[in-house]
Design a protein around this nucleic acid. Structure first.
Lengths: 91, 91
DNA sequence: TTACTATATGCAAAAACTGCATACCCATTT
DNA sequence: AAATGGGTATGCAGTTTTTGCATATAGTAA
């Protein structure tokens, strides 16, 4: 499922136009992103937690050439599924 | 940020009551979950992709006793941040 | 208050990460 | 509707990172 299909379905369930459904959806993702930018984590009970994980610089390797490479520190968004979410997929 | 705070903020941005904001939010997460249950992945352009990842069975350990334990195969929801999302946090 | 979530422990094995080329799928534009 | 551009998936190896086990406690949320 891609974003377009998701929006179409939400448009139905929420009784909104597709444009409004998309606006609503974008507002939510942007709110989550803004919170994460503020170095926060976003916990959503029953769904999961979004966290910004800091990754240290380290030595990697180009798998094609085998050559060693210095990898810079970086950050990435991690999603930790809530307990309820795991159970859905393991029962 | 927790769910309550997120809902409060969305209530403002979306010009909805908190109850409606929460209903809207829950509808979205449920829609995503349902899609994932159907063995699908959910791709959201500019945000990321939710996927169900299969995890193999393996040998674990009770950290309290040190005893070895067989861990069954399982599934978990993975979130892969989109390129745009990574850039936000690395610039 | 009741429910969920984080933490903390040791350790084995799975999985992620890196560069990069190709194939592919999606979205936007003409 | 078709074309184009861009993000994303895949595969490769080897090292780093994460995962997840049991369980109690502490903290937070509904």
């Amino acid at each position: 499922m891609n974003k377009k299909q998701l929006i179409a379905q939400l448009s139905g369930s929420l009784n909104l136009s597709k444009a409004d459904a998309e606006r609503t959806f974008d507002t939510i993702t942007n709110t989550i992103l803004d919170a994460l930018k503020g170095d926060d984590s976003v916990k959503i009970a029953g769904f999961g937690t979004y966290k910004v994980a800091k990754r240290k610089a380290r030595v990697g390797r180009n798998p094609r050439t085998g050559e060693q490479i210095q990898i810079a520190a970086s950050q990435k968004v991690k999603f930790l599924p809530a307990k309820a979410l795991k159970e859905v997929f393991n029962k």
